[in-house]
Nucleic acid binder design. Structure first.
Length: 815
RNA sequence: GCGGACGUGGUGAAAUUGGUAGACACGCCAGACUUAGGAUCUGGUGCCUCACGGUGUGAAGGUUCAAGUCCUUUCGUCCGCACCA
């Protein structure tokens, strides 16, 4: 048969679409699989990363369909975001037009790959209905106190003129444009992800073995739970008088209460409220004030790499246990937004405190000593040890002391055990046009009031000026003027839009109904389809998207929309596609255009290559001649189908009557089938599965029994259909009326052999191979092994002979 | 600094529980058919050696009849977090 991919692929893609072959069924009594590849941002054209992502997902979806599952395999568009606005600034094209044209282009490109997506469930997150549902959730969250507004120091990108979440700051720069972030104090809205920190951490355990370990660890570290003691340092009388009696104390947090008798100073962040108070009331001398202001101007990121510096505030606090006076300093290494922005400093047992104390000649008092050996000289001792000079706790092991000291604080109401998280609330305000408006209204009388749900969506105006200066919604002449839903007086709409990560935090829930469904969800459909059985996407989403999506699922559960605790059952993180050892990118000029590849070889070749070149989780190095090789295999596969007898069923084969080559061919075919079953369900190493099919093809070529060929194609077409669907549908239709595209049984008789090949090794080194009958006795096997390796045994004594049935014989010799 | 992943031919990679290392493919070499081939088919291909044979999974030790696989130490690469008290 002549292999003409362009013709075959167009034909089948048309048929699949016409017959709605890939729409999920509404029969919820059937077993289901929800297979989802992360949806794309409509940037313009698809790239190889997309091809890999969607090919992997499609393989799962098609496999489960063959196995009789009701499969949901949707696609959509993460279509709000900055590039649309940037295009508007640069080329004057409206973000909406730009976005929807890109979607049309990319939809066509994906269709050309023969991906088995549901068409009735496709949507773009910038569609007004989607915005309406989302704004409904946001209002619920606001009413429940999960969304709040506060002023704070925020990551501000001076290039994109917007706020970024901590998760979106990469190496101190904007995750999109790389511009260094500056700190800016302003109002914005936050989602209380910190309320869910404990659960987000705890339920990571339920994902063990189903999500890559690396992702679980990254999320765990990001959430960053730590146990410790929180207590108040009281200002002494003189200091209290100095700050005008406005403050009597400040809180500190420590994970090392065992070192508390070694405290020699306390340190405040430059932004600490006491520091700010003293600055604004002129309670500090000029040099000190100047030094603190200089520290405040340095971004958090820069501080992390700057040398430690600080300045004494001229006030003191009282040590809660010893009553000693402890000087208070301002230090650039104290983080404003972790704990209370203040620490107790124990230079003898903390590296940072040590460095600082050394620089400013502050006392260093060791209170924990190693049980063996000496304290180190010239550095802090941070290991375990025995307490000294620590009142009643002296002599205790430091772990025991930690607990005892915390108990002591609690008993005497001096402080309490607390848990601190690194995870901060999620700031969701963006000063952009092309996003979902935050559905809140500012009323002079009523304060912040949510929009009436009946008025949703709060849609974007289309007539806007987008020139890169400020927020277009803010500058629109009429849009922001409205009436207060509560009191009816004139009011102002919030002009900030939501972080686009909000849209991707729940899109997978919306897919559970067709895109025309009038409500956000159908509870029955949601229960049936969730969670996503296989979620496939890039490792770059290990924290951002995957953490937010988990958070949203839990929030929507608590708001009564969803029953799931976790959205994604199994996560597969695909590796990057590289060329010349580097990630494909336009700026490096090392891209391969999927469109050209499909035009030259067809979608099946592209899909086969991308799954064969490496396991999905590994990086994939592009190789043009290996693509050629994939194409040649498909040509051969098409061509040799002429050895098959067309039929509606598997041929009956008398295995015992077959030649050795025929038997081997059958065995290879069923080995490939066995492997494919493991690969789809457990290992996901499509490369080894394809290798198995190639081996089977090679073995079939060694014989010319048409029944063996027919059986081989029946099975191999079924295995390969998820990988190279067009060719497999073409051949299966012509040869087997497609009766072969379904679950396959392994024919066990082909694995029954009458002779085994055993390796013979001497002292563990492989020396020869022998053929033995299956029922041969151990002694006989050892005898033939000895004969086979005679020359290595000469003059030696055999101490031991080990027979591993079906594998090898090892002779242990001496002398 | 902390955490994670990984190191196997010229290349991408196999080897699921310790059991014949390098399957499958790319590349390369030789041959066949061809006016021609970057098409197709056949054979070969870890390294050293004419060969017998030796040697080989980053390195060094160890456990074992047997180690790519387990343990210890070490080197290197990549990724994430990074003054989190």
């Amino acid at each position: 048969m002549n292999y003409t991919p362009a013709e075959i692929e167009a034909k089948w893609q048309h048929t699949w679409s016409e017959t709605k072959a890939y729409e999920p069924s509404n029969d919820f009594s059937r077993p289901k699989k929800y297979v989802l590849s992360m949806f794309p941002y409509p940037s313009g054209r698809i790239h190889m990363g997309h091809v890999r992502n969607y090919t992997i997902g499609d393989a799962f979806a098609r496999y489960y369909r063959q196995q009789g599952f009701n499969v949901l395999h949707p696609i959509g568009w993460d279509s709000f975001g900055m590039p649309a606005e940037n295009a508007a600034i640069k080329h004057g094209v409206h973000p909406k037009k730009w976005t929807y044209e890109n979607i049309a282009t990319m939809r066509g490109e994906l269709a050309g790959l023969g991906l088995s997506f549901s068409e009735e469930r496709e949507f773009a997150t910038s569609n007004p209905e989607y915005t309406a549902f989302e704004q409904g959730f946001i209002i619920d969250m606001f009413n429940k106190g999960l969304l709040y507004r506060k002023q704070g120091f925020l990551n501000w990108c001076p290039h994109d003129l917007t706020v970024l979440a901590n998760e979106q700051v990469v190496d101190g720069g904007c995750w999109r444009c790389g511009t260094p972030i500056v700190q800016k104090e302003m109002y914005q809205y936050y989602l209380k992800i910190s309320d869910y920190a404990e659960e987000l951490l705890e339920s990571l355990k339920s994902l063990e073995g189903k999500w890559p370990k690396q992702v679980l660890t990254m999320q765990e570290n990001w959430i960053g739970k730590s146990y410790g003691l929180e207590f108040a340092f009281k200002l002494d009388e003189e200091s209290e008088a100095k700050v005008g009696a406005v403050y009597q104390s400040f809180d500190v947090f420590t994970t090392r209460p065992d070192t508390i008798y070694g405290v020699s100073y306390a340190a405040l962040a430059p932004e600490h409220e006491i520091v700010r108070h003293m600055l604004s009331f002129g309670l500090l001398d000029e040099a000190t004030a100047h030094a603190i202001k200089a520290m405040q101007r340095v971004s958090a990121r820069e501080r992390a790499t700057s040398p430690k510096e600080g300045v004494a505030l001229g006030i003191s606090v009282i040590h809660p246990l010893t009553g000693a006076k402890v000087p208070v300093w301002v230090a650039n290494f104290v983080l404003t937004d972790y704990g209370s922005g203040a620490v107790m400093a124990v230079p003898a047992h903390d590296d940072r405190d040590y460095e600082f104390a050394t620089k400013y000649s502050l006392p260093i008092k060791a209170v924990i000593f190693p049980s063996e050996g000496e304290l180190p000289v010239g550095s802090a001792y941070t290991e375990a040890g025995i307490l000294h000079e620590s009142a009643q706790f002296s002599g205790m092991d430091n772990t025991a002391a930690k607990a005892a000291i915390m108990d002591h604080f609690e008993e005497h109401k001096l402080g309490k055990k607390v848990i601190n998280f690194r995870l901060k609330d999620w700031g969701i305000s963006r000063q952009r046009y092309w996003g979902a408006p935050i559905p809140l209204i500012h009323c002079d009388t009523c304060g912040i009031v949510p929009e009436d749900k009946a008025n949703l969506p709060v849609a974007l105006p289309e007539d806007v000026v987008i020139n890169g200066e400020g927020n277009p919604l803010e500058h629109h002449p009429t849009w922001k003027h409205c009436t207060c839903p509560k009191c009816g007086k004139p009011a102002i709409r919030e002009t900030d839009t939501m972080d686009t990560f909000i849209q991707s935090s729940w899109y997978f829930l919306r897919y559970t109904v067709p895109n025309t469904y009038p409500e956000a969800f159908d509870p029955k459909a949601l229960d049936y389809w969730m969670g996503v059985d296989h979620y496939i996407g890039g490792i770059e989403h290990a924290i951002l998207h995957l953490l937010y999506a988990r958070f949203f699922t839990k929030m929507l559960r608590d708001l009564g929309y969803v029953k799931s605790d976790e959205p994604f059952e199994h996560l597969l993180t695909q590796g990057m596609v590289l060329k010349d050892g580097a990630k494909m990118s336009k700026s490096k000029g090392n891209t391969v255009d999927p469109g050209e590849l499909v035009a030259k070889y067809g979608a099946d070749t592209a899909r086969l290559f991308i799954l064969f070149a490496a396991p999905p989780t590994q990086e994939l190095e592009w190789n043009d001649s290996a693509v050629e090789g994939a194409f040649r295999f498909l040509k051969r596969f098409a061509d040799r189908s002429q050895n098959v007898n067309a039929a509606d069923r598997l041929p009956n084969i008398d295995h015992t009557a077959l030649s050795k080559e025929e038997k081997t061919a059958r065995k290879k075919v069923y080995e490939a089938l066995k492997r494919s079953q493991e690969v789809y369900t457990e290992r996901h190493t499509f490369n080894t599965m394809i290798a198995g099919v190639m081996e089977a093809m090679n073995a079939l070529g060694e014989q010319n029994n048409r029944d063996v060929w027919s059986e081989g194609y029946w099975i191999l077409l079924s295995i390969m259909e998820p990988i190279v669907p067009h060719l497999c549908w073409e051949l299966s239709t012509n040869l087997f009326n497609r009766k072969n595209l379904g679950p396959q049984n392994v024919c066990e008789e082909v694995f029954e052999v009458d002779a085994l090949s055993l390796g013979v090794s001497v002292n563990g080194k492989n020396r020869a191979t022998i053929e033995v009958g299956v029922s041969e006795s151990q002694d006989t096997i050892i005898e033939s092994a000895k004969t086979a390796v005679e020359k290595w045994l000469e003059g030696k004594e055999i101490v031991k002979a080990i027979v591993i049935p079906g594998k090898l014989v090892n002779l242990v010799i001496k002398g």
